[in-house]
Simulated assay, not measured.
Amino acid sequence: MALQVYYGGTFDPVHCGHVAVARAVRDGLDAQVQLVPAADPPHKDATHADAIARARMLDLAVAGEPGLKVDRRELRREGPSYTVDTLRELRAELGPDTPIVWMVGGDSLLQLHRWHRWQELFQFAHVLAVARPGSHLDMATIAEQSPPVHAEVAARWRPPRDLSQAPAGGFAAFELPLQRPESSTELRRRIAAGEAWRDWVPAAVAEYIVRHGLYAVRDVTPASL
């Protein structure tokens, strides 16, 4: 049974690095990958574009990409939207036997113990940590930098492709084949400053940002974009 992978984030905005990660996991694990935009948080300034705009940019970014889709379930949920609640909902929908994977970045993995009811995640899904090339997500590094996470995942460690052999409960690290330069924070800064930024996002996303004036985009000539 094909892995069902869920890739959560604010995607504020989605950039080519996000799409590259989703493609790499799709191809490396022969999986379906759903990108799950987070809802607008209670604090107005926590995101820079609202949920509707962020989800629409995701639609544009993955249009025509086989095996990549957008899942808006967290945008439809009232109140705080916790990953454990998303995974419980997915498990109820997909049944007890479907292998479900929740993707996190390497930095997020080391902070996993700060998530709401984080140990329950493994009841509903596997956790896949995506590592940048050259970074280390081996057990020794995790033990040194995040002892609580190490205590939980050490016995769950398995090769990424083995995640398809069980519905939930495993942990794996996935190393990206190429380093990516993109960062949403730096991308927003470049857009606001009128610096070069268009090559960091899919063309349709760039057009959406300009058309809707997101991230205080400057009205500059196309050559300087």
Rank of each mutant, 00 (worst) to 15 (best):
L58Q: 05
L58R: 05
L58N: 05
D59K: 02
D59I: 06
A61C: 11
A61E: 07
A61H: 07
G64K: 11
P66N: 10
G67I: 08
R72W: 03
R73M: 12
R73W: 08
E74G: 10
E74T: 10
L75H: 06
L75M: 11
R77K: 15
R77M: 13
G79D: 11
G79F: 12
S81C: 12
S81A: 14
Y82V: 09
Y82T: 09
D85P: 10
T86E: 05
T86K: 06
R88Y: 02
R88H: 13
E89H: 12
L90I: 00
L90N: 01
R91W: 06
R91G: 06
A92W: 00
A92V: 03
G95Y: 00
G95A: 01
G95T: 02
P96L: 00
P96R: 00
D97E: 13
P99V: 02
P99E: 00
I100F: 01
I100R: 04
W102G: 03
V104Q: 10
D107Q: 08
D107Y: 04
S108P: 01
S108A: 15
S108F: 00
S108V: 12
L109E: 09
L109I: 03
L109H: 06
L110S: 02
L112E: 05
H113Q: 05
R114I: 00
R114C: 01
R114L: 13
W118E: 00
Q119A: 14
Q119W: 00
E120F: 02
E120C: 03
Q123N: 13
Q123R: 14
F124M: 09
A125V: 09
H126P: 07
H126G: 04
V127T: 13
V127P: 11
L128I: 09
A129H: 08
